[in-house]
């Protein structure tokens, strides 16, 4: 009908995004980090958990050392002779996958409960939202820590703990957004057409709740990585056989005082870069999406 080309929201989003150089650099950083994690086995010079590849004679070598059998340890080795660079690449993979699975599950659970609350109202809503309030009034790290104190170590348990501390953010956000949506005329119209509630919710309401969920999910991935690292550092997180970045740092803690800083230092730098990149991207996405949400 009209000759004016319609700009797709996605394209406008991308155009807004590339306007900030910092955000673009951070986004490239996030992509790079994700690639390293996905192709860990291909990129890492050594499989740090294959005992055949590790030489105990190479223990605690400083960065840049050449090992017993000529292997070049760019970032040094830990006390068991593992190449730190390889250990970090594998650790990054574990850190990222744990937090992504956790946030994914938290989004699914939180969104479902949030929509349920918004749709049903009344007692169901009051109950869910009260649970959200209580959940959010306690610090995530502490809740996760105490839960793991009861459950014990393990990747699956860390994920459960992370989901438990994060679902409430999504439930609250989705409920807020869904309430706004549900009051709009088109939902009323769909209800009058006697469409299935499920179809209205997932086909019509849900897509409109996505922007804030995306923003919060980005930030929560960074949070999940940090919480997992802290839990592992405290010794209640991932098991020693599957060390995340946090556990690597923790392992190096004992050697820090004797000057062997690299075992803790480099995994921390990777952690820092990862978190800063994700947070910068998240901040920027929020700035772009915010004015539209208010509209």
């Amino acid at each position: 009908m009209s000759a004016i080309p319609v700009e797709s929201p996605f394209r406008r989003f991308v155009e807004d995004f590339v306007r900030s150089p910092t955000a673009v650099i951070a986004a490239i950083g996030v992509l790079g980090i994700a690639c390293v994690a996905i192709f860990a086995a291909q990129i890492a010079p050594q499989n740090p958990y294959d005992l055949a590849e590790i030489n105990i004679m190479d223990g605690s070598l400083p960065p840049g050392s050449v090992g017993f059998d000529g292997f070049h340890y760019w970032l040094g080795t830990d006390e068991q002779g593992r190449d730190m660079l390889s250990a970090m690449i594998y650790g990054l993979r574990i850190s990222l996958s744990v937090s992504l699975i956790a946030v994914g599950s938290a989004v699914a659970i939180g969104m479902s409960l949030g929509m349920l609350a918004a749709w049903s109202g009344g007692r169901v809503e009051a109950f869910i939202m009260r649970a959200v309030d209580i959940q959010l009034s306690f610090p995530a790290l502490l809740v996760a820590l105490l839960l793991l104190a009861i459950l014990g170590k393990g990747i699956d348990k860390v994920i459960i703990a992370l989901v438990l501390v994060q679902w409430a953010y999504f439930a609250r956000t989705v409920r807020g957004a869904a309430l706004v949506e549900i009051r709009k005329d088109y939902v009323m119209a769909a209800r009058c057409l006697a469409l299935q509630p499920m179809r209205i919710l997932f086909g019509h309401v849900l897509p409109n709740c996505l922007p804030p969920v995306i923003v919060i999910a980005t930030v929560q991935v960074a949070n999940a990585i940090a919480i997992e690292a802290s839990l592992s550092f405290l010794g209640v997180g991932v098991p020693i056989t599957e060390p995340s970045l946090g556990l690597l740092i923790s392992n190096g803690f004992g050697y820090l005082l004797s000057g062997r800083y690299w075992i803790s230092f480099y995994p921390g730098v990777v952690l820092l870069v990862t978190l800063v990149c994700i947070n910068v991207v998240g901040d920027h996405v929020r700035d772009i999406l915010n004015p539209r949400m208010q509209k």
Binding site: A222, A226, A229, S230, F233, L234, G246, I249, S250, G252, F253, L256, L257, G259, Y261, S264, F265, G268, L271, L272, L275, V276, N279, V280
Partner: peptide
């Protein structure tokens, strides 16, 4: 931003590394 992003425990380790070691 950096203060926000770095995990607390690693900041602590770095403080120890610089000031104590």
């Amino acid at each position: 931003i950096i203060g926000f992003s770095t995990p607390n425990f690693w900041q602590g380790l770095m403080l120890i590394m610089l000031f104590a070691v």
